[in-house]
Each structure stands twice: as C-alpha cells, then as structure tokens.
C-alpha cells in the first residue's frame, strides 16, 4: 500500500532540547492513524514539521510518495486542523472558506461550501467568526481543512479543548470521513483514539515507542485478568491472597481486578470461589484499554 505520510529519521532540536529523536513513521493511504502521546511528547512538533512551519534538523518527510523540499505544492493535498483554531474575527464562516479556497487555488463553489458547512454541522454562516463558540470554531477548522477535498487530513488534538458533546461531534465527523481520507489524528485522549483509529503510533519523549493496529495492541498487551464482584469483597480478597495462581489484585470501581497466571483458564478461579460459597455478582474478563497499554509502554 502506498504511504500517505512517510517520516524517516526525523529529528528536531529546540536549542539543546531534543524534541524529536530520529523518528520513523508511516501512515498508510486511507487509514485513520492515531498519533498519541502525553503533552510535550512531540506530537505537535511532528505535525508542524510536516507542514513546514518548523525546520527539521535531520530526516525526511514524504507526502504521497513525494519528498518535501522547498516547494509548497504538497500542501494542496493536505487539510490541517489545529488544536485551538484561530480565525480572523471579522470574517464569516462562508467568507473564511472562500478565503481558504482562494489560498489553495481551488475553485470557489458556494454550494459546495454550504455542503461542507452542513457536513460539519455548522449552519450559522452569517455570524462573524469572532462570535463563535469554541466548538463552532473547531467545526469551522474541520470545514476549512476539507474545503479543497484534500487526500490527507492532519488533525492536531482537535478534541482537547472541547466539552463532551463537542468531542463526540468531532469524533462523529472523523467516523464519517473514515475510508474517504487519510487521517493523521494526534491526541492525548486515548479513549478518542480507540474509538476512531485503525492504527496508532505512540510517541514519548520524542521517540516512537509503538506503532500497531488497535486490535494488535489489545492482543499483544492483553493479560489474563478478571473483574470480580461479590457480596463480600473482603472475604474475596482473603481467598485471593491464598491462591498461588493469583499474581495480584486490587480494588476496581466494578469490584476487584484480579491478575492471574498466564497459563490459567478462567474457570479455575471461578470453581475455587464457588467452593468457598461466596456469592458472586460479577465475573467478567477485563479488556485492557489503550490507556493501560499507554501506561505500560511509557513506564
């Protein structure tokens, strides 16, 4: 599969601080790639380098097979959504999209502009952007990134400053775009990445720690763990403390989270508990979240 974005040995220093440490990354055409990491891990720096807003110290970036050099032509294929979008306050949404079209040498089609605004759920187009809420600005940011029908959409933490409803709306938009565009989606909200991404790349301290599909991550990092809830969890913990095949256990909001030895079948513990006459109200396998994987990899 042809890569939409290919990053090789990318290195960036801010004075003496190594912000990106020779990173390699490939985003395949058509996928939603989640670029996750803590604040300050190097996500925005990577994006700014792709957009040539910053100068790299070493390495190469290719967009749709073409290496980025001094020309700006590759930007015709990219739509960019910043984390905190800022627009000229005196323009309306429609005017800003016309501006975006003109800067991109893209034909201005007012009907197409209205369609894009409807697609992102922005129907208020006569109000000046200065009067927009945070969520409306984010929708407009997505609209301006899509207005020239780019092949690649680069989104830099588009949900980080939104309320839950705004976040859901943005994720819904990404879901609608899935399969139609290559989306490079940077976020530190792992729950969001888990919802919409095909693959993720995990960056920490300027280094790529992991690049895998969501499914592969869960398979690779899955542990034999159970969530157990009983009428008397103190009694449960007393029993667990005496079992050799229980590696560890801790309280969980749904009961007690129990980590078992790798080679144990689920029923062994269940049988044991039944024999102790304990009243079990919950006994379910625990599926690790991306957050669990993130904590494990970065620690």
């Amino acid at each position: 599969m042809k890569s939409a974005i290919k990053i090789t040995n990318l290195t960036k220093y801010y004075d003496d601080f190594l912000a990106l440490d020779h990173i390699d990354l490939t985003v395949n055409t058509g996928e939603v790639f989640g670029f996750i990491g803590k604040n300050g891990a190097g996500k925005t720096t990577t994006i700014n380098l792709i957009l040539s807003l910053l100068h790299k110290d070493d390495g190469e970036i290719s967009i749709l097979g073409e290496q980025i050099k001094d020309d700006r032509n590759y930007k015709y294929d990219i739509g960019y959504v910043p984390d905190v979008p800022v627009f000229p306050h005196y323009l309306t949404a429609e005017e800003y999209l016309i501006y975006a079209c003109e800067m991109l040498d893209y034909p201005v089609d007012k009907q197409a502009i209205q369609d894009i605004l409807s697609f992102v759920g922005l129907d208020e187009t006569t109000k000046q952007v200065g009067n927009y809420s945070r969520g409306m600005k984010q929708r407009l940011a997505i609209a301006q990134a899509l207005v020239h029908d780019p092949k690649i959409l680069i989104m830099d933490e588009p949900t980080s400053a939104l309320d839950p409803i705004g976040r859901k709306d943005v994720l819904d938009i990404i879901t609608k775009l899935k399969g139609k565009k290559t989306i490079f989606y940077s976020t530190h909200i792992l729950e969001d990445a888990e919802k919409v991404c095909d693959r993720i790349g995990l960056i920490d301290h300027g280094q790529i720690k992991l690049v895998k599909s969501i499914d592969a991550i869960k398979t690779d990092y899955i542990q034999p763990m159970m969530i157990i809830d009983t009428k008397d969890n103190q009694q449960l913990e007393d029993i667990l403390s005496k079992l050799d095949y229980v590696k560890q256990y801790r309280s969980h909001h749904q009961g007690v989270l129990v980590e078992l030895s790798d080679d144990l079948s689920d029923n062994t513990l269940l049988t044991e508990l039944v024999q102790h006459d304990i009243i079990i109200t919950r006994y379910i396998p625990y599926l690790p979240t991306l957050e669990d994987v993130f904590i494990e990899v970065t620690s």
Binding site: N48, L51, S52, L53, R72, N73, K75, Y76, I78, Y80, P82, V84, P85, V86, F87, P88, A100, M103, L104, D105, A141, Q144
Partner: peptide, 14 residues
C-alpha cells in the same frame, strides 16, 4: 500575536 499563522501557512501561501 493572534496565532493566525499556523492556519495561514498550512496552505501553500508564499
């Protein structure tokens, strides 16, 4: 100062 530049220069503006 208004942080408008990243969006402007994400487009092929000279």
């Amino acid at each position: 100062t208004k942080d408008l530049m990243p969006l402007i220069f994400s487009k092929p503006v000279s």
